[in-house]
Simulated assay, not measured.
Amino acid sequence: MTGFGRAVGEVEGLTVTVEMKSVNHRFSEISVRMSRQFLTIEDKIKKVISKSLHRGRIEVFISVEGDSLTDRTVRVDWSLLDQYMKALTDVKEKYSLSDTIKMDHLLKNEDVIHVEESANHSEHVEEKIIQVVQNATEQLVIMRNAEGEQLGKDLNIKLKQLLEHTEQLEQYAPSVVKHYHDKVHKRLQEFVSGTIDENRLIQEAAIFADKVDISEELIRIRSHIRQFSEALLQKGAVGRKLDFLVQELNREANTIGSKANDSEIAKIVVELKSIIEKLKEQVQNIE
């Protein structure tokens, strides 16, 4: 979900510049920084962006520059100036001062004379800002799409690896019960001098087989891998769906790990979880 977009436009002697950058975030968060005089259109700006970007932390910087952006007016507080003049005259008379009252004595005070600025823009300026925001958003989307193509290739490689380990588990898992059967049979021979109760042995092996059966987990892992692969081909926002699938993959791997009473299965589960963790990290980059 990382990307950068920039666009520039001109209207009524003003230059509008919009820069946008996005970084990974679980949800959608849009932050807009611009002059206070344009805050009335902030919601419109966010709606334009959210139509194309559904996930990620997006920072938007908008600048509008030009001499016609504001009107400047010189304001004189005549009432306050009259009071200053009277006060200076009274001080001069009271203390018999010979100094001449000059203009700078009166006008250097910012409370007496100051410049006021007022916003000076039409609806055309606001419309241009929205348009430039749209253009910057499109540029950001292009960059994110290019990154997404590379990310998709990497994810498909990891899905293939995940499927290979799943197939290893499918092939190896049935032998676990046989190993257990042989192990129990051997131990019984060591402690029992007579014949072994085969029915009892078969019953114990069956109970063990039920406890370590991971066929359902493997079926669900295959299903999650298929759904994950299909989601990568879909248009629109799929990041949250992939988040969910990664969580489910991790859940199944943990269940297999808890059921496994075999070192070889435990090794494969470690590899599974390593790949799933990498998937989880990459999915954070997908909208």
Rank of each mutant, 00 (worst) to 15 (best):
V76H: 04
L81V: 12
L140T: 10
S35Y: 09
H124C: 05
D77V: 00
D77C: 05
K128V: 01
D71S: 14
D154F: 02
L106H: 05
S28L: 15
M103C: 00
S52H: 13
L106S: 01
F38M: 11
Q131V: 00
R75E: 12
H114M: 09
I142R: 14
I62A: 06
L81S: 02
V60G: 07
A119H: 03
D43E: 14
D82R: 13
Q150S: 13
E93L: 10
E123S: 14
D67I: 04
L107S: 05
R55Q: 11
D104W: 08
E42S: 12
T89R: 09
Y95D: 02
H114G: 01
N135W: 06
S118H: 07
D67S: 14
W78Y: 11
L107D: 05
V115H: 00
E123F: 01
D67K: 13
I45F: 06
T40G: 15
N145G: 09
G66I: 12
G152N: 12
M143T: 04
D82N: 12
I142C: 06
R57E: 07
N120I: 02
H114F: 15
R72E: 15
R72F: 10
L97T: 07
K46I: 10
R36Y: 13
D90T: 07
D104L: 07
M85K: 11
K51F: 11
E93K: 11
D90H: 05
V64K: 07
Q83L: 08
R33H: 14
S28R: 14
D99T: 08
S50P: 00
V133H: 03
T70H: 07
N135T: 06
E138N: 12
Q134A: 13
S122W: 07
S63P: 02
R55N: 10
T89Y: 06
L107E: 03
H114T: 11
K86S: 10
G152S: 14
V48A: 12
V133N: 00
D67E: 15
M34S: 13
L151Q: 04
M143F: 09
E126D: 12
D111E: 13
V133S: 02
S122I: 01
Q139P: 02
D90G: 01
F27W: 13
K153M: 08
Y95V: 10
L80G: 05
K46H: 08
A87G: 00
Q150T: 11
V32W: 02
A136G: 05
N145P: 04
H124S: 14
E138R: 07
D99E: 15
E138T: 08
H105T: 00
F38N: 10
L107N: 03
E138Q: 11
T137M: 03
K44I: 04
D82Q: 10
N145L: 13
